[in-house]
């Protein structure tokens, strides 16, 4: 019965995909430098680290990320948070190599990418990773 094997296969695949995504969710990663699209560059604060949160209309966890990052930025000196809806900006997504939302990219005041987080960020881990880059660490 091909159907039974397909069902078992689907269960195994689901477990594996779920485990991998759960492991990667919210982790801070560093990627090779990429060009910064104009749409993103004009959002950057001139004197602070900017968290650019890339979202789409169809993304439920983006709202959780927005609340978390907005709160983090308001309590952290030298940290700025903006959300960019890229539902209709596929060029921005491909330039930055972003395939899922939310993805949050942290930029220095000079416009260099510092780090990025896929999924809803983990607050403490993100703050620890950002601390060396903040002007006046809290």
């Amino acid at each position: 019965m091909i159907g039974i094997w397909a069902l078992l296969g689907a269960l195994v695949v689901t477990g594996a995909v779920g485990a991998v995504l759960r492991f990667r969710e919210g982790r801070v990663t560093k990627v090779a430098a990429r060009d910064v699209p104009d749409e993103v560059r004009e959002l950057l604060a001139p004197d602070a680290v900017t968290l650019v949160q890339l979202s789409t209309t169809f993304c439920a966890p983006c709202r959780h990320a927005k609340v978390l990052l907005g709160d983090l930025a308001s309590r952290t000196e030298g940290l700025h948070h903006v959300e960019l809806d890229i539902t209709n900006l596929p060029a921005v997504a491909s330039t930055l190599g972003v395939l899922r939302t939310p993805t949050t990219v942290a930029y220095s005041a000079a416009g260099t990418e510092l780090l990025r987080v896929g999924g809803v960020p983990r607050r403490d881990a993100l703050l620890d990773a950002l601390r060396p880059h903040l002007v006046s660490p809290t």
């Binding site: 993304c59 439920a60 890229i86 999924g119």
Partner: peptide
């Protein structure tokens, strides 16, 4: 929600 998170991938 795989479809939602992968919206960009699907779009591409």
């Amino acid at each position: 929600c795989l479809g939602c998170e992968m919206y960009l991938l699907i779009r591409r």
